[in-house]
Amino acid sequence: MNWIWFHKLASPPHAYGIAGRLAPWFGWPAGMLILAGLYGGLVLAPADYQQGDAFRIVYVHAPSAWLSMLVYATMAVAAAVGLVWRIKLAHAVAAAAAPIGATFTALALATGAIWGKPMWGTWWVWDARLTSELILLFLYAGVIALRASIDDRDRADRASAVLAIVGVVNLPIIHYSVYWWNTLHQPATLTKLGKPSMAGDMLWPLLAMLLGFTLYFGAVLLVRLRAEILRRERDAAWLRAELA
């Protein structure tokens, strides 16, 4: 089998070009799906009989929470690829992904708190999902802080890769221990609100938002990857030729 295309992909000039060409193919569908999902979720879908209009925040909250974990997994896989095969581009992907993931996690936390105000009467409840999102945010903060504190780029790449992999091994343990902790200390009624079975006209906007957010992540990752390549290759000859 011919692997040349794969090796080409790992070279910064090719990746720079391909990322630039691919980004719109993610960005435009993402924009359309999110618009459709928002219209479907905020206008077309009926109000929930239990939660009223407050349930509508799930159309932003659930996709953010899903992406907060998907981005961490993406980052860890990219970090592992970079560490094992010493592909610098994979480290660039991991570096580009971390702040996106942290932002989605913060968004999931904020929307969770906003949803909690009408539901629970307070902005913050030590609910299992909110708490594990908070710990996830700490994990992102650790990876970003470690990368920022090391001046040597190669060392920064590989050290934060090790941390990302350690984090991804720990993530399920953290997740399940927080759930266990929560069921012990909280009355079970709160968690019952979590997973209502959804009617079709409530469900399709959510699926559209999930797909739209995922594609949006792809688009932002590609754009950030280009920026990261620019930063890393700023002295390279190909870049001077490309920009000339």
Partner: peptide, 30 residues
């Protein structure tokens, strides 16, 4: 792990807490 990663860094001990504490939370719970 955290200590090995932050070896020789400026303000490494502050960073160490940031890296290790989230990982230690399950142990704290149990």
């Amino acid at each position: 792990i955290g200590s090995a990663l932050t070896l020789g860094l400026r303000r490494g001990s502050l960073l160490l807490g940031l890296l290790v504490l989230p990982l230690a939370m399950p142990a704290l719970i149990f």
